[in-house]
């Protein structure tokens, strides 16, 4: 099992021949991910990294049977790329691109309603199932195989959490980087649900940040459906209101989306909330021992 991606996932890369696409496709292939080809409009018929290049996602799906797409297309064209992948019937679209205009994502979110496509991201590090498939830009070696799942809005904080988990004697089943934009395809609660239902995951680390209500929504669901320990951290306890902290979505808009408010709701819903990001690993170890 595992969630979202595994050794059988057939992955295409949109924006395959660009700098980012080339670099990360190479890394993914080295990790053992089944990268079956890529899409760069206008370069169809050629070959790149020993894999076929297609003009359209539909062509790529037809020829390779791809069921996962990872997007490295520049921000101005990324919304279009997501919709193209959905139209071609790709089941899982992972969009790495940072900086997509918000109104484009409003359109995309609406476009995906009624399709069978799940979108992860944008503005995310991707998804990794340890020792099976890396569909993202994370350093694979940190994610030693184990039974802890991670859901996170932030890239480097995901690596930090994975590293602490491994150092505390555990390992990672699947880590899902959901993205730091105001509108993302898979909100926290849906990613948590996937891991809660995964028989190969024994505990969940949920990392959020200031802005929006996704962590509170997830916490309320966890309260009623928790079957395994959840450790939570919210970045931005010291962030000033009204300022964007790097991520487009990380901005305190009111009293409900501060780190403090989110941490309070999470603790009330039975999540082991840590105040310091240095305590994520050991808190998970303690939570598992308690179980």
């Amino acid at each position: 099992m595992s969630v979202l991606v595994n050794k059988d996932s057939k992955v295409i890369v949109q924006g395959f021949t660009g700098t980012e696409g080339t670099f990360h496709a190479t890394q993914m292939i080295e990790y053992g991910t089944q990268v079956v080809g890529g899409v760069t409009p206008g370069k169809g018929g050629s070959s790149h990294l020993d894999r076929p290049v297609f003009n359209t996602v539909a062509d790529a799906v037809k020829s390779t049977g791809a069921n996962v797409s990872i997007i490295f297309v520049p921000p101005a064209f990324a919304a279009d790329a997501i919709m193209e992948a959905a139209e071609a019937g790709i089941a899982l679209v992972i969009c790495i691109t940072e900086g997509i205009p918000v109104q484009d994502m409003v359109k995309v979110k609406n476009y995906l309603v009624g399709t069978t496509t799940r979108l992860i991201g944008p503005n995310c590090p991707g998804v990794i199932t340890a020792d099976e498939a890396k569909v993202g830009i994370m350093p694979g070696f940190i994610f030693k195989k184990g039974r802890i799942g991670i859901v996170s809005k932030s890239g480097t904080l995901t690596y930090e959490a994975a590293d602490q988990t491994v150092k505390a004697g555990m390992g990672i089943s699947t880590a899902i980087g959901i993205g730091g934009d105001p509108i993302i395809g898979t909100p926290t609660v849906e990613a948590v649900k996937l891991l809660m239902d995964d028989p190969e995951t024994d505990g969940i680390i949920m990392i959020g940040e200031i802005g929006g209500s996704m962590e509170a929504d997830a916490a309320r669901w966890i309260k009623d459906n928790k079957t395994k320990p959840v450790v939570g951290f919210i970045a931005g306890q010291t962030a000033p209101p009204g300022r964007r902290m790097g991520h487009a979505g990380a901005i305190i808009g009111g009293a409900d989306d501060t780190a403090e408010a989110k941490m309070k709701i999470m603790a009330e819903c039975g999540i082991d909330v840590v105040a310091s990001p240095a305590d994520i690993g050991k808190t998970m170890a303690a939570a598992l021992a308690r179980k």
Partner: peptide
């Protein structure tokens, strides 16, 4: 560089927005 000026006494330089916010929180703790 993505920089926001604050009023404290410990400067920080971090890669990644989430880790940068988490580092600020850690400084406070």
């Amino acid at each position: 560089l993505n920089f926001v000026k604050l009023d404290g006494n410990v400067g920080c330089m971090v890669n990644g927005a989430g880790l940068a916010m988490a580092t600020m929180d850690m400084i406070k703790l």
